[in-house]
């Protein structure tokens, strides 16, 4: 029994037919979904994507994120979202999506003379 429980899979590497550490029956077998983790490193800053992990539910995802991504004081707030809810742009469409901006340097506000008194621009 123990041998089954201590079987180890690395994250992102779980074969589909072997999820749940082989301990659940075929009928109820479900893969733990993947979650994306966003960490706010300190108050006032944005949440930044930190990585992803597996968890059975949102609560477990928060706790896993706390243990995996904030154990060295990296964060004060955690967001998690199931990866399947993230819609990503298609790399094959990069040409039409991003390249038209390349030759429009006038969109950068670099053509203004700023007074010396204005800091942090």
């Amino acid at each position: 029994m123990n041998q089954q429980l201590i079987r180890k899979y690395y994250y992102g590497d779980i074969p589909e037919d072997k999820t749940g550490g082989n301990i659940v029956s075929k009928e109820t077998k479900t893969d733990w979904p993947l979650w994306e983790v966003f960490i706010r490193s300190k108050q006032g800053l944005d949440h930044k994507h930190a990585g992803s992990l597996h968890a059975a539910d949102a609560q477990m995802a928060i706790e896993n994120a706390r243990d995996v991504y904030t154990r060295r004081m990296e964060g004060v707030s955690i967001w998690v979202v199931e990866s399947k809810y993230i819609t990503a742009s298609n790399p094959e469409e990069a040409g039409e999506l991003y390249e038209p901006a390349v030759d429009k340097i006038y969109r950068h506000p670099t053509f203004y003379q700023l007074p010396d008194e204005v800091n942090h621009m």
Partner: peptide, 13 residues
């Protein structure tokens, strides 16, 4: 349990 947890995240926890 270190290195033997059922999944990586719980191993760390």
């Amino acid at each position: 349990w270190c290195g033997h947890g059922p999944v990586l995240e719980q191993d760390i926890a």
